[in-house]
Amino acid sequence: MNPGETLLSTSRTFQLWRYGAGHSQLILRSGFRPEGEPVELLFEGVRSVQFDSLYFPELTVWRDEDEVVENDRARFYNLRIELRSPKHTGVITAGRMSYIDGTYRDGTIKWWVTSPRGEAIGGGDRPTCE
């Protein structure tokens, strides 16, 4: 769907800060800056997570080709984000990723990337939960 692209490349170290399966959210937070505010990466609609380590020094965030989940009625798209570090790579599959200057509750969203909307297969209405 998309050819892949670098979304962020930084010398900062990020670590897993919070994961909530119930809200399907994952937050990676950088160390605190001298001004006292961290930088966070917020993943929403998290479908899967694969890490070898919870720390990502010299992080590069790569958007790989979107993943497609399909059944007989609908096709859904998810972002496939690779977290690349010199010693390991992690993968997160989610619906949205936001870069926040500050913290999730108090920070400013600087940019975000969202997966494409799903679509019905073979016509008809967009599927809903039953």
Score class of each variant (00 low, 15 high):
129 C>T: 07
107 G>M: 01
84 R>S: 08
105 R>V: 09
52 D>R: 12
44 E>H: 08
27 I>A: 02
25 Q>A: 08
98 S>Y: 03
29 R>P: 03
44 E>M: 04
49 V>S: 08
118 G>L: 04
110 K>R: 15
77 Y>R: 10
28 L>G: 00
86 P>M: 05
67 E>M: 03
92 I>D: 06
108 T>A: 13
121 I>N: 10
56 F>D: 00
59 L>N: 01
29 R>M: 15
34 P>D: 12
53 S>W: 12
115 S>E: 09
78 N>P: 00
76 F>E: 06
95 G>F: 03
52 D>L: 04
111 W>M: 07
11 S>V: 09
88 H>T: 01
110 K>D: 02
127 P>W: 08
102 G>E: 00
37 E>M: 13
6 T>A: 15
122 G>L: 10
129 C>A: 14
72 D>Y: 05
104 Y>H: 14
58 E>S: 14
5 E>W: 12
117 R>L: 07
91 V>L: 01
7 L>K: 00
123 G>Y: 08
32 F>Q: 10
22 G>W: 08
87 K>Q: 15
106 D>A: 15
101 D>M: 04
26 L>N: 02
29 R>C: 14
21 A>N: 12
118 G>C: 05
95 G>A: 12
38 P>G: 15
65 E>V: 09
16 L>H: 06
83 L>A: 03
87 K>L: 13
47 R>W: 05
85 S>R: 11
102 G>H: 02
99 Y>G: 09
124 G>A: 04
56 F>A: 01
98 S>N: 06
4 G>D: 09
23 H>V: 15
97 M>R: 03
54 L>H: 10
104 Y>Q: 08
84 R>G: 04
86 P>G: 07
115 S>N: 07
114 T>E: 12
7 L>S: 00
63 R>E: 01
51 F>D: 00
106 D>E: 15
